[in-house]
Simulated scan of single mutants.
Amino acid sequence: MIFDFQYVAASLKVAVKYIPTTLMLSVLPLFIGIVFGTWIAICRRFRIRIIAKLADILIPVTKGIPLVLHLFIMNFLILKPLDFLSQWYGWADALRFMDKTYIGIVAISIYAVVVISETMRSALISVDDGQYEAGYSVGLTRWQTLRRVVLPQAFPFAVPVLCNNFIGLIKGSSIVYLITVVDVMNGALTSAQINYRFLEAYIAAAMIYWMMCLTVERVSIILEKHLKKYQYRVQENNLRREVL
């Protein structure tokens, strides 16, 4: 069968419609991962009781499980109780038409929290201990020092890795087609199931993922430049506080 660019264009036309779904499956887990991952990283950095010990155990275990298994496990963990409730209360129709996109978001978010918590912990460790002492010396509490001094300096260190995490989430979100969620990958394969042009469909999906990841990479470069300028300003202000 001869390769046909017309089928690539046809698959692109269909797959582009599902870019918002792919972005939702990656942007929301990124946001959730940054919020909860940073909180977990702070707890591990300051060795907060119980939380730090639990994180030390659960994070390595969760990192050792492939993302596709996260998806399948969450699929069954969510669907099994709903299946029981649907039989009890007669929700069969509601369960049948349930949007499994939210299951994908939950599964990818758990993975994102674990990965990003490691990223933020490394960024927090990269900040010199003298910055904490400088904050304490001017009367700031631990939380105020963390919020005003440490996090503004740690975040620029984390941005390049966070952008790589985001790219990984975009690519990793393609596995949701396994639970019948229609995203860019599944959208591209829709036309292939009719004309059996699977190679053209895969190439069309690859082109879209490549463009999305390239866009994130370009934005990250611009963001890094602005954050470095902001980081220098924060360091200058800290030096002035120490002198005063």
Rank of each mutant, 00 (worst) to 15 (best):
I42H: 10
E217D: 15
A204Y: 08
G139F: 06
L30W: 10
M24G: 13
C163G: 15
R121P: 00
Q153A: 01
G104R: 10
N75W: 14
N195G: 02
T22H: 10
S126R: 08
V176M: 06
D83T: 12
M74E: 02
L82E: 10
Q144L: 03
M24Y: 08
Q6M: 01
Q87T: 07
K171L: 12
P20W: 13
K53N: 13
I105C: 05
P81Q: 11
L12F: 11
Q131A: 07
Q131W: 05
A154L: 05
F198T: 07
F157G: 01
P152K: 08
L227W: 12
Y132K: 03
V61F: 15
A112K: 10
L85I: 09
L67E: 15
I59K: 05
G172H: 05
D83G: 14
L151T: 02
N164W: 01
E118A: 03
F155S: 01
V27D: 09
K17W: 09
W39L: 13
D56F: 04
T215Q: 04
K80F: 14
L77A: 15
L30T: 13
V106I: 15
L71I: 10
D83C: 00
M207K: 04
R148N: 08
Y202V: 00
N165M: 01
E236F: 04
F36Q: 01
D93E: 15
R121C: 01
G37K: 07
W91D: 04
V115T: 14
